[in-house]
Design a binder for these strands. Structure first.
Length: 610
DNA sequence: GCCGTTTTCGGCCCGACTGTTTTCAGTCG
């Protein structure tokens, strides 16, 4: 774990402890805010301290504590404070509906120190003896415990999108004449790699349809249990244990609600601060000036009214997007307004129109130049039946063309990866021959000869030159022996003159396996210098590189990236949207992604090294 | 504990909902 995350964890825990002690709420919030800043920080905290850089929300006092941690490995005050409560008590903070005040009460009055203790106490009916406790409150805690147990891990984004799209699709289809707007919001809309629960917002033609929508939602086949039912919000638990909230919004508040429920929380807090400075008030119903609504139905209009260019949802983490939004507004929207008498929204639409036909203009506006799904020309990492994929070359070819791709890289495993049916040299040659034949038959090069070649423990590759030289693209990857010096392995692979892409560079698997230790600065620097692209593996439980590392690789080292799905079935191509989402979260422009190149550009790029 | 183009003190985002102590504290998003 990086020092950033270690410190974030300490400050979160510190805040919990202060909460239990009943400290000043603003004092507590300062710790949580600092923890969040550290958690989201895209550079190493060691470097920030070394270079005397300031961080928002971290002042002299917390800075001193951070330095103490970096130098000694612990913080004295924290070590002392920690001893006041048993560690298992902090599990209780994970239970929805239980907050610090209740946990404190449970601990002090009933000596409840853990989730097990809590369950026992409920069974024995002890909770009812507490002041301010009734039957309903106990029921609520029981339910919270249930939810905690089912969904302890956050769900991967790909899974959340499938559920959200299924629900939206079903409601739209079945309530065609009732629903006017419907969208998911929250971290799903921000394309965060994992999602806690899913938020869906909907507007109806007429208030009288509200019950109909709720009824339809509750009776979807994926629903296991209705958790909560109300006129504006209904929550369900799916059979897979995912909580989905459906909120019915008034049409006139659609934009404000979408903005509000998309978040992130940090983004919204920062945005409200801007409102205050400018004399506005913002909530989920609208943007107000002197108690009069000035924008509410359209999300973009809310940002524009505040002098901000609407930031893409993927960037809304309060990591600089609001400063950038202001810059873009002043440079590109304000001049239009000065010149022509247009509403904010019309000026914005006019600019959007110009961007469509003017690639140079798009390049200048960072929010518009982020890679989009439309920019992607192909996928370079797809497994065929030759190794551990499910489909033949012909099936993959057809699927790729149907998907609108210009090219598709057949990337089978190499000989060492026996569990995945890695190909011997002879098999590679046979496969390549078949690829050539298929391309000849259709009269154009669509299938590319790629291999996902194992990086052996000493950093050498699994095939010799005579195989590598015949491939269009060479992908190198670590698949085993994770306990080696993986920085050295990656560096050697990057320096190999045939290697074009490093697949899933960090090796992490969401909810299963953390990244191995790598000196990213060295790897990114080498990749940039050797013209090797880093993969943004879009497979739903990899998303590797993740947003934070990709941001660093681009910003500090100007690296190139390949968004690949690592598909093993042709119906997994859709996962490319997850990769695009992570790339956008990393602020990656179109030109940094090699899978946006057309085929001649791509092949030329791949040959640069050789 | 942080922060500052009114401020080095006195603010700190805001509203909804719940359950219960019936006027408000606790929790959530």
């Amino acid at each position: 774990m990086s020092k950033n995350l270690e410190l974030a964890k300490i400050f979160y825990r510190w805040a919990d402890i202060l909460d239990l002690k009943g400290d000043n709420p603003f004092h507590i919030r300062a710790y949580r805010q600092a923890a969040k800043v550290l958690e989201d920080l895209k550079e190493d905290i060691e470097d920030v301290i070394k270079n005397n850089k300031k961080l928002p929300g971290i002042g002299a006092s917390l800075r001193k504590k951070i330095i103490e941690y970096l130098e000694t490995g612990k913080i004295k005050d924290f070590e002392k404070l920690k001893e006041e409560f048993p560690p298992s008590l902090f599990e209780l903070f994970e239970i929805p509906g239980l907050g610090p005040k209740t946990i404190k009460l449970l601990y002090e009055r009933l000596n409840i120190k853990s989730i097990d203790d809590l369950e026992q106490a409920i069974k024995e009916g002890k909770l009812l003896r507490l002041p301010s406790f009734g039957l309903k409150k106990v029921e609520k805690i029981k339910k919270g415990l249930e939810i905690y147990k089912i969904s302890r891990d956050k769900i991967p984004l790909g899974f959340a999108l499938q559920i959200a799209n299924f629900i939206i699709g079903s409601l739209k289809r079945n309530l065609k004449d009732v629903i006017t707007n419907i969208s998911y919001a929250g971290s799903t809309r921000r394309m965060k790699e994992t999602v806690g629960d899913i938020d869906i917002l909907v507007t109806v033609k007429n208030k009288k349809f509200v019950d109909k929508v709720n009824e339809e939602f509750k009776n979807l086949e994926i629903v296991k249990e209705v958790l909560w039912e109300g006129p504006t919000r209904t929550s369900i638990l799916t059979k897979d244990g995912v909580q989905v909230d459906l909120r019915i919004i008034e049409k006139k508040s659609w934009g404000a609600a979408l903005q509000y429920f998309t978040g992130s929380k940090a983004h919204n807090i920062a945005l409200r601060k801007i409102c205050l400075e400018k004399g506005y008030k913002l909530n989920e119903y609208g943007l107000y000036k002197d108690d009069k609504v000035v924008a509410s139905e359209n999300e973009e209009e809310i940002y524009l009214t505040l002098g901000l260019y609407p930031p893409p949802p993927e960037l809304r983490e309060n990591l600089g997007e609001l400063t950038e939004a202001k810059k873009i507004f002043e440079k590109y929207i304000q001049p239009i307004l000065n010149k022509e008498k247009l509403s904010l929204l019309d000026a914005y639409k006019l600019l959007k129109e110009s961007i469509k036909s003017d690639e140079n203009l798009r390049k200048k506006i960072s929010f518009e130049n982020l890679v989009t799904l439309k920019d992607i020309k192909g996928d370079l990492h797809v497994h065929s039946k030759y190794s551990d994929g499910a489909n033949t070359l012909e099936e993959i070819l057809k699927a790729a063309l149907d998907f609108g791709y210009e090219y598709i890289g057949i990337a089978d495993h190499s000989k060492s990866l026996k569990v995945a049916n890695g190909l011997s040299e002879e098999e590679v040659k046979k496969r390549n021959y078949e690829i050539d034949k298929i391309n000849e038959k259709i009269g154009k090069k669509v299938l590319l000869k790629v291999m996902e070649v194992d990086i052996l423990p000493d950093g050498s590759l699994d095939y010799d030159e005579d195989i590598l030289k015949d491939l269009d693209i060479v992908i190198a990857a670590i698949h085993s022996r994770f306990n080696q010096d993986n920085t050295e392995r990656l560096l050697r692979a990057i320096e190999n003159k045939y290697v074009n892409i490093i697949a899933h560079p960090s090796g992490r698997i969401i909810n299963q396996r953390p990244s191995y230790d790598v000196d990213w600065d060295k790897v990114f620097k080498a990749a940039s210098e050797n013209n090797v692209a880093l993969e943004i593996n879009a497979y739903f439980n990899r998303l590797d590189l993740n947003d934070t590392l990709a941001y660093k690789a681009y910003k500090e080292y100007n690296c190139k990236f390949a968004i690949n799905t690592d598909s093993h079935f042709i119906d997994q191509f859709w996962m490319v949207i997850l990769g695009v989402g992570q790339a956008r979260r990393a602020w990656l422009p179109k030109e940094s992604i090699i899978t946006t190149y057309n085929l001649p550009e791509l092949l030329k790029w791949a040959q640069l090294k050789r």
